[in-house]
């Protein structure tokens, strides 16, 4: 029900740092778009602008064709850290995302989501009693309880180990199939982008700009071991290399493929 359209978006901070310049990105209804790039390419800045947590210096953000500013009831988010409220129980934390719902409906959704995220009966526990991965599941449930039109993911899996990350990818995908929010996600992990996204926006740094946008035409569920999957990963890697080569040339030095790839 909600498209996300970003036009000519730029952000210069008060200290003069230009984090983002002239970014155009579009996400169709129910589409998963991944913003991919290294640090300094403005991908988190872009997400924060869409979330309404920061104000853009130039350009517009539209939801469903309507230009918006500030936070919006249709937009929900999961951050890099779980950011659960430590004084609320796990169940109340999930319910926090659905404050607009009637009490009975909210409780029913909390119970349903607790089961979906593999923590049935954990509603009365404290966040601190859960592991990092479990806390992040709760944060995902909190973000989805209100059935948002747009879900923003700011590297929510980056602090988790490989195994936990894989199961959380599956969780997000299964909830996405059910609720169909438009997802805009930030990641620096190529494999994660290829597993989850319909489209990958490769970004380049200083200031953050769009390098290129790549369609991921792999059938779902995606098989990480399939040759096409590898091919897609390599294509994305090439795009990143191109962006690094272009940004490195005028500045001299520090070219080539960095170690994290």
């Amino acid at each position: 029900m909600t498209t996300v359209t970003v036009r000519g978006l730029g952000k210069t901070y008060a200290d003069g740092t230009e984090a983002l310049r002239g970014v155009d990105v579009h996400a169709d209804e129910g589409e998963i778009v991944a913003l991919l790039g290294g640090s300094g390419c403005g991908k988190t800045t872009l997400l924060r602008l869409v979330a309404g947590l920061d104000v853009a210096s130039t350009g517009t953000i539209s939801l469903g064709g309507e230009v918006v500013s500030g936070t919006h009831p249709a937009v929900s988010a999961v951050f890099q850290e779980p950011r659960l409220l430590p004084w609320l129980s796990v169940g109340d934390n999930i319910g926090f995302g659905g404050r607009r719902l009637a009490k009975a409906e909210r409780q029913a959704r909390v119970d349903g989501l607790l089961a979906r995220i593999g923590l049935p009966g954990a509603g009365g526990r404290w966040p601190r009693e859960l592991s990092g991965g479990q806390q992040q599941r709760v944060a995902i449930a909190r973000a989805l309880i209100g059935h948002p039109g747009v879900l923003l993911l700011d590297e929510p899996f980056s602090a988790l180990d490989t195994f936990t990350r894989g199961t959380l990818h599956d969780l997000v995908l299964s909830l996405w199939r059910e609720l169909r929010p438009t997802i805009v996600m930030v990641t620096h992990d190529i494999e994660e982008a290829v597993v989850l996204a319909d489209r990958i926006v490769v970004m380049k740094p200083h200031p953050g700009r769009v390098q290129e946008i790549m369609q991921v035409d792999l059938p779902r569920p995606r098989d990480r071991l399939a040759p096409q999957f590898d091919l897609m990963k390599r294509n994305v890697l090439r795009a990143i290399n191109r962006s690094l080569a272009e940004t490195a040339r005028p500045r001299g030095g520090e070219g080539g493929v960095p170690a994290w790839i």
């Binding site: 979330a51 309404g52 947590l53 936070t71 009831p73 937009v75 929900s76 988010a77 951050f79 850290e81 950011r83 409220l85 926090f96 995302g97 404050r99 607009r100 909190r142 209100g146």
Partner: peptide, 12 residues
């Protein structure tokens, strides 16, 4: 500040 942002995201 991060918890404040949670409040903002969820429309407080």
């Amino acid at each position: 500040r991060k918890l404040i942002e949670v409040g903002r995201i969820f429309g407080l």
